[in-house]
């Protein structure tokens, strides 16, 4: 059987675990080879640990178990030169680039007056500038391939003003603007640019961001903002990967400029 992204090469950031690993595996299941990066270092500003070398090794193992190739590199999305180098090394080995999944992100929870300049900077640098860097590193290779698909991971926080998450919300909204702009700019090259907007996903990031429940309980009217329409609290990463797969594949060859909610109806409440 031919896979839905057979013969394509996908660049996935934040691929050490969580959604990024899930995307790498789902795309590999459908025939893609993978260029993977992850920072593999902790942030002083983030209360939970980042993926480890062992995590990224596990992503490599899982992709290779599917008989697909993967080139994995330790790289920080805030470091454009490192990203560019990782993509170039991957393309040199795998021959081309068709898909960019700009997924790497961090999240912290705090009230507005506890957002330090360092938290603001790290969140925007990683979740917005990091997405930008990932696209810029990938686009020349997509143009060389005659077209391609860019998928950026936004969030329900890229559509709604989720409280106690101001830097995260700012970055995830910013990603939408960047993608709309590039959708217009890159259409002439048959490069499509779309965002995915998950509700809560069951990953180390989501379980690592403590404190939200206490803040919600301090103002009961806030709680419903986080509720889903479908009777589910958080999604398996694979649910998001299925949407990424659709956007990466030629099934969506004329889909661009889309904000694709995979949010169990969170944003229509």
């Amino acid at each position: 059987m031919t896979g839905r992204v057979e013969g394509k090469v996908a660049f996935v950031t934040g691929a050490g675990r969580g959604q990024g690993r899930s995307h790498a595996i789902r795309l590999a299941e459908e025939g893609a080879d993978i260029i993977a990066v992850d920072i593999l270092e902790d942030y002083a500003t983030v209360g939970y640990g980042m993926a480890t070398t062992a995590d990224l090794d596990e992503t490599v193992r899982a992709v290779e178990a599917l008989d697909r190739r993967i080139i994995a590199t330790k790289a920080d999305v805030r470091d454009f030169d490192a990203l560019k180098g990782a993509v170039e090394a991957g393309v040199a080995e795998l021959g081309r680039l068709d898909v960019v999944v700009a997924n790497a992100g961090i999240c912290t929870v705090q009230a507005w007056d506890e957002v330090t300049p360092e938290v603001w900077r790290d969140t925007l640098d990683t979740n917005l500038t990091g997405v930008w860097n990932s696209m810029v590193a990938g686009v020349p290779h997509l143009i060389a391939a005659g077209g391609g698909s860019i998928v950026a991971t936004s969030s329900t926080a890229g559509i709604k003003g989720l409280p106690y998450l101001a830097p995260y919300v700012a970055a995830k909204h910013g990603v939408v603007g960047v993608c709309r702009s590039l959708a217009n700019e890159l259409a002439r090259y048959s490069i499509r640019v779309n965002t995915v907007h998950p509700t809560g996903v069951d990953t180390p990031m989501a379980s690592g961001i403590g404190g939200l429940e206490g803040l919600i309980n301090s103002d009961p009217d806030i709680g419903p903002i986080f509720m889903n329409t479908l009777p589910v609290e958080s999604l398996d990463p694979r649910e998001i990967s299925n949407a990424v797969l659709f956007l990466a594949s030629d099934e969506s060859r004329y889909v661009t400029g889309l904000e694709f909610t995979v949010d169990a109806g969170n944003t229509i409440r």
Partner: peptide, 14 residues
Amino acid sequence: ARYVTGTELKVDAG
């Protein structure tokens, strides 16, 4: 798409 609801899925070439 079992957790996709309330979305406007554009197939509109931008």
